[in-house]
Nucleic acid binder design. Sequence first.
RNA 1: GGCGGCGUAGCUCAGUUGGCUAGAGCAUACGGUUCAUACCCGUAGGGUCAGGGGUUCAAAUCCCUUCGCCGCCA
Length: 634
Amino acid sequence: MKKTFYITTPIYYPSASLHVGHALTTVMADAASRYKRMNDYEVFFLTGSDEHGQKIERSAKEKNMDPKPYVDDIVEGFVDLWEKLDISYDDFIRTTEDRHKETVHYIFKKIYDKGDIYKSVYEGKYCTPCETFFTERQLDEGKCPDCGREVETIKEESYFFKMSKYEKALLTYIEENPDFIQPQSRKNEMVNFIKQGLEDLCVSRTTFSWGIPVPIEEGHVIYVWFDALTNYISALGYGQKDHERFDTFWPADVHLVGKDIVRFHTIIWPIILMAAEIELPKKVYGHGWLLLDSGKMSKSKGNVVDPKILIDKYGADVIRYFLLREIPAGQDGIYSEEALVTRYNVDLANDYGNLVSRTVAMVHKYFDGELPAPVQTTEIDADLQKTAQQVYQKTTEAFEKLDFSSGFAEIWKVVNRANKYIDETAPWILAKNEEDRERLGTVLYQLVEAIRVITVMITPGMPNIIKKVQEQIPYDFINAKWQDASVWGALEPGTKLIKGGTLFPRIDLKTLDIPEEEPETVTLKEDISYDDFAKLDLRVVKITKAEKVEKADKLLKLEVELGSETRTVVSGVAAFYETDQLVGKNVILVANLKPAKIRGIMSQGMILAASLEKDADLEVISLSKEFPSATIVN
RNA sequence: GGCGGCGUAGCUCAGUUGGCUAGAGCAUACGGUUCAUACCCGUAGGGUCAGGGGUUCAAAUCCCUUCGCCGCCA
């Protein structure tokens, strides 16, 4: 019997287009799927869309559309994106499909009949204009967090799911399966959460109708998670006539999710399954977010990065490689187009692409494109092979853990080793002496083998570029097995290599048209009159002495000359200036500021300085010309 | 407020059960090379391992504490 591997992404919500963050989850799942297929697993890779809910109902209404055609358009965009990204999913489940509804009905009834779903009254804070329920905690000072208006307490008949009943069973499962929740930090959070006690979950609503009807009573629709999570088995045919897929693939090997929905997947979902007496998934992996320099990507900030534009610009493989390489396992990563292009230039163009290019070129120059046979190998050759073998081991371990970032870092050790190997063996010198011809052939063979091994290993991440490599080095990369990277010497000597185009042409960062971030709109304080300004008495003063204030790392005690007077000023600049850097500077003093005691020192005025938020940087305003002490500034 | 995590080079991060001179990549500077995509190879600079205290023959690592950042708490 073939080993099976079932991996899922979340089903995405079609209220807006997908951004690179979504692409990250899906690309990871795809790389894992391809890796497993190369290892002879029968893989089932599921993605889809979560199409019900009030938000969709409302958005459709705003566009004067029925919900279904409304989501159809958006979901088409999802499918299109995954196609562009070469996502090799086996099925795409939509929660509006009949097969999904069938399973949801089946499982709802099963749990209801068992007594784990019961009818009660839901009480919550409701914002009528927004038509949304909130919990106490979500409220912003008692008001609606979306619109700021008053909320009212509303009661509604609802069906509840007895989560509390399974609290202990779930904890036991998590304990007995230490790898169930990944990464570890998430697991700890979830355990804490469960230990605080689980409340029963409201699983139906009457306030909107765009959803799967509750099978036992009209007017109720099944609410979010019960509907959405069930996709993982409805797509397999659970509770349907044909459930062969379910029998083959369940329990899932990995539910890959963003860290924000780990809780639903590690608490609600397992409990639904327990109540329905279905085996639990083996693993839920919560990966990090893709952040922008400027913070989290969000629709409201308008800083969402559209993956389709990036794919058109750089190609799917490049985006895939960046996502897999740049985001450390389980952690957040930062996206910027500069980072993307730098990765591209350094790893793909300079190191890998150029390695292929120079190697194929040499085989052509010295052997007419015919791959020479290796003859006698040396220590250097052995070292290259050893690197490749070790990397194969480590990359395997990393890929098994879905740690693609480390995996690709490993693979590049072979790339680097191979480039160094060229330097060490200097084929262009060997080519000058006829007696070195065998050695030259051996060297080039080793290089092409190294490229073969590397290329096999990058296949799960970059399924496209390997086709181009294959055009230059005739080896069946497309159908390669993972194990093919563990052997050395698979290429037939005499194979004709074909010079091809550049795999990854370098991109000049300077010519890149990266849209500047919008300059912040400056909000100024309210206008003041000239008289207000004239109240300030600003004077040029020379700093004559500066010393640190004890027990205050930010403060310096300065002495300044104001005419004949010597004043003491306490200033928060210690993080940016050594004491002797300030002495002698002509700076501007707010001379008529009311004296104030700071750390027990009477500060008589204030020195002007420009500073960034959170003390990120600071510079005292000083004059470059000499002015008499106490000169007026206006 | 409760629980947990993090703080290591200019930037992004590795540092396993305490153990050689604290590492890698990017960036910078210099040198080498010409097969190659202004690439590749090498060398160098750059660190109070957030601050303070403690345990130990020995601490980035263990304990306490201060500061800063982050996550979870339906």
